[in-house]
Write a protein that binds this DNA or RNA. Structure first.
Lengths: 143, 143
DNA sequence: CTGGATCCCATAGGATACTG
DNA sequence: CAGTATCCTATGGGATCCAG
């Protein structure tokens, strides 16, 4: 699968190069895509957001993120730890105590995430309005 | 589903409030979460990135994003259009011609996305190193 | 060319029970 | 408390065929 998609020199419909458009993320073999998928998954953003303020324990995180299962919390924490975004500290005491904190790398990420969330907050009314408009128009055209 | 998780006044395990930690995204009933999920899905970011530069037609998008199926491209475009991120223009000509462009709202989003992608690019080496460290340590502990 | 309609599968992710 | 192990379902998303 990959016939004459982009590599045929004689492009038939367009004389200007269509493929110098892509710059960063579309490139295969670059890890940006998979890293983005990782931090943009269902729970990672929330965990990072919560850990900005302070170090938290497993149960505190679970209680703070309503709707997360312990399985997904564990998975999310492992992935973030593996990527060096958060740091996991185990205290060898009888009721086990494990604390999670944002790493320095995670702190820099948080800045960026905050901007994205800020955009979403600022524009959610407009998005909701756009959806309502779209749905109303679609409904009126169907009947 | 939603027993006495956060709303019981007499919290049994913690005397300090655990739940004033969360501020923006964890709140249920707020649309930030679902909007984030939308723009952070597998393809939306790529489409937005491509449309920054110029208006593109359906086939151009499909060719530019290697690996996307026409089904997912259609779905992604519809969702983005519904949210007011992109604008869809149909030219009533015999081979149908449909062009997609970033809306003003979409342009502002693009700024933010660029920051996130920039972070990923700048730190991917560090993340890869962290992963290698983690995997090596995990492997050595298991044997 | 630009999709819509189906079919089908892989994976994400929830529920539950068990362990150190 | 902080997980691990299983099971099972829902959804994302690919392949294919059809239509305006």
């Amino acid at each position: 699968m990959k016939e004459g998609t982009l590599n045929s020199p004689s492009n038939l419909c367009s004389s200007e190069a269509d493929y110098d458009v892509l710059q960063w993320d579309v490139r295969e073999g670059c890890e940006v895509r998979q890293i983005l998928d990782r931090i943009a998954d269902k729970w990672s953003l929330l965990v990072i957001a919560l850990l900005e303020k302070r170090t938290l324990r497993f149960t505190q995180l679970r209680n703070s993120i309503e709707g997360i299962s312990q399985r997904m919390l564990t998975t999310t924490l492992r992935n973030l730890e593996r990527d060096g975004i958060i740091e996991r500290t185990v205290y060898p005491v009888v009721p086990p105590r494990v604390e999670y904190a944002l790493s320095p790398l995670g702190c820099t990420l948080h800045e960026t995430i905050r901007a994205l969330v800020g955009w979403t907050e600022s524009n959610q009314a407009e998005i909701l309005a756009a959806r309502a408009r779209y749905d109303a128009k679609a409904a009126s055209e169907r009947w």
